[in-house]
Amino acid sequence: MDNIESLYQTMYGSVVRFLYRKVWDEDRAEDLAQEVFIRAMAHQPEKPRAWIFAVAANLARDEARAAIRRKKHLTLLSNDPIPLSSPSRTAHESVERQEQVAQVQQALSCLSKRDREVLLLWDAGLSYPEIAGQTGLAVGAVGTTLARARKRLVDAHDQTDREEQSHAAHS
């Protein structure tokens, strides 16, 4: 059994990143990540890596439901402070980055739920068997799903990019 503390040190960033891409709120992602590890300490799962991401996915789902119910997700985002550790950027760079982020978010939203989940789990560092265990896919199907998800993400992003450029050229 992996030691939860060592997993906490090595996986915390991955879990926050995984959660952030679901809740789009850094503070909330960190809150949820800490909760995941507290639960892991209490539960002591046999396969902690996969378990941690399974719980994280569930918490993110609950969070999304709550956010919809309260209709305040955007408010939270807009009220967030400027991160302490973020490098100072010029206004132009900042706007450019926001546009890039929005494009990737848009591209991610074009993926099916399963494709997106598999892609995010892979990016969080889970192995194929771990992804399979969490998503219910056969291990052999993980590669197929990942191949499709990667292609769709890049295609959707490129299409959004083209549309943006076309829109900019017309205006």
Binding site: Y12, G13, V16, R17, Y20, R21, E26, A29, E30, P83, L84, S85, S86, R97, Q100, V101, V104, Q105, A107, L108, L119, L120, D123, L153, V154, H157
Partner: peptide, 11 residues
């Protein structure tokens, strides 16, 4: 692309 949608501050 996924790197672009990561938390901005150091975690």
């Amino acid at each position: 692309l996924l790197g672009l949608v990561s938390p901005q501050r150091v975690t």
